[in-house]
């Protein structure tokens, strides 16, 4: 029984742990499918987190205020990034890193100035939806999730449909694979790229907002703790495919949610080995994913990281 309870509790904790990774990776995929190499996730997560808490404290302590605020704030910063790399054609790696540092400083400063630090909010509550709530009480820990967890599958399905089953998605991917060809076909490369970056940023902002509003329910400077970088790695692992990113995020969530539970259950295993496992598994899965068939290179969008300049020969 104890072991059943352990598994139910553990599995119940997985979605909340995996969700920020999944949404952030999805946001990065949207941007990178359009050919814009995006390293801004860590910064945008912070922006989303701060905006979510800030809106809760300044406007109303409601998730439907906080999460849109997180999305909008991240979109604004995403627009800045898009302006840098698409319009001004700054090197995408450097611009991405610069945006992260900028966001780290900015959020920390704003959080201090506005005194948003150390004020708990009630945030996103757990809910259990109808057919699942009828299951035996022992399983409730499994299905009692934040509202956003239930929205995760529709979001992934929606993004997948748009990217791979719609004309917009086809054009977006064309811009990412061969911007010159897309340009000759009359597609607005700049427009598609800016929109893709901003839309992707919205998803990353939502992930950041969730970390704060659904997770910590409080603002701490630098609270994302490197989770954005893991999302960047997840994108490569997922070979720029949404469902694989979701799988990767869940895998990561499983392990991360397991780590404290092993200790809490009093199982003695070497401390630092356990803290290392999420990263170890990431490397292992990347190696596995990269073997054979030319590895990840085949799936990488053809023009990833390359700014498009009309009339310029390459």
């Amino acid at each position: 029984m104890a072991i059943c309870e352990f598994i139910v509790n553990w599995a119940g904790g997985v979605p909340a742990t995996a969700l920020p990774y999944a949404l952030a990776a999805l946001g990065l995929i949207v941007s990178e499918r359009a050919g814009v190499l995006n390293l801004t996730a860590e910064g945008l997560l912070l922006v989303g987190a701060l905006a979510g808490i800030g809106a809760s404290l300044a406007i109303a302590d409601r998730p439907w205020v906080a999460l849109p605020a997180a999305v909008l704030a991240a979109m604004a910063v995403g627009l800045l990034f898009a302006g840098l790399v698409v319009l001004l054609r700054v090197n995408q790696v450097i611009a991405g890193l610069a945006v992260v540092f900028f966001c780290q400083g900015l959020t920390s400063l704003l959080g201090t100035l506005a005194e948003w630090q150390n004020h708990p909010i009630s945030g996103l509550g757990k809910l259990i939806v109808w057919p699942l709530s009828e299951l035996p009480a022992g399983t409730h820990a499994l299905f009692q999730q934040d509202g956003l967890v239930y929205a995760l599958l529709p979001i992934f399905y929606g993004v997948h449909r748009v990217l791979f089953k719609s004309m917009t998605g086809l054009r977006l991917r064309a811009v990412g694979e061969a911007p010159e060809a897309a340009d000759s076909a009359g597609l607005g490369v700049t427009r598609y790229r800016v929109l893709a970056v901003v839309a992707g940023s919205a998803l990353i902002g939502l992930a950041g907002g969730y970390l704060a509003v659904g997770g910590t329910k409080m603002w701490f400077g630098g609270m994302t703790g490197g989770r954005g970088w893991i999302a960047v790695a997840l994108v490569i692992f997922a070979r720029w495919r949404p469902w694989r990113a979701l799988f990767g995020a869940l895998l990561f969530g499983c392990i991360e949610s397991m780590v404290p539970r092993i200790a809490a259950a009093g199982i003695s295993v070497p401390q630092y080995f356990i803290l290392m496992t999420p990263y170890l598994v990431t490397i292992a899965v990347m190696v596995w994913a990269g073997r054979g068939k030319g590895g990840a290179d085949l799936d990488e969008p053809g023009a990833l990281g390359r700014p498009h300049v009309r009339e310029e020969r390459r």
Binding site: G13, M218, P260, R261, A264, A265
Partner: peptide, 14 residues
């Protein structure tokens, strides 16, 4: 804080 929350919840679940 994200890890601290997970740790605290894991302890309470026990």
């Amino acid at each position: 804080p994200v890890k601290e929350r997970a740790a605290t919840e894991a302890l309470i679940d026990q």
